[in-house]
Amino acid sequence: MSVVAAVVVPAAPALLPGIGGAADPLADLRERARQLVLETAVTKGVTRVVVIGAGESTRTWPTDAPSGAARFTTGRVPDGALPTDVEIGRMFAPSGGGELVLHSIASDATPQECAQLGRELADGPSTLLVCVADGPATLTDKAPGHLQLDAAPFALELADALAAGDTPALAALDPATCERLWMRGRPALQVLAAAAPGLRGELVSEEAPFGVQYLLARWV
């Protein structure tokens, strides 16, 4: 057995409960991501869910690790708190039944290191990989990273790669370019590329309401 399905979900901290304020501007996106993960897990009948997201280091995390959401409010974060991307992935993981694995990949991991981890994660029972990653954050004048003119074509190519299940394209993402375009999800996508070859890609939705490309994709 191996990775039989994968879902790509966004990594915005505002997806975490309470962080987006009373208006909760990403509530709809959060719900769609949760539904997509759940549907995919049920449809494929997986026995294991693996969350992969960028963090300071490459390691596994206890499934009951404390929330690190306070890093976006008071800074009073408990010891052993999850990296944000992994916490977002955990939020989307279906509750009850099956094994849950939480894994971070170092933000500065090389494509080779990502590929290595991807192959390791693929070795296991029937698995759904939840990959927490966004496209560039430089899509508009008001975007967090301001406007970079090549961000839009880059985002288009990324969306195409997810739509096509194009693992070589993801594996080929250049770390320096991703950094320049404020795209922090690159390592997680490159883990996905190595962990889930041969799946059929589908881009479920794509949007950039705040100048950051949020993608929902399903590979089965």
């Binding site: 990594a11 915005a12 901290p13 690190g68 890093r71 976006f72 409010t73 008071t74 800074g75 009073r76 974060v77 708190a81 944000t84 954050a137 967090p144 990273g145 301001h146 404020w182 922090r184």
Partner: peptide, 12 residues
């Protein structure tokens, strides 16, 4: 530069 997902893992 604008803050982007800036977090503090200690008391702000």
């Amino acid at each position: 530069t604008r803050p982007f997902r800036t977090g503090f893992d200690r008391d702000i």
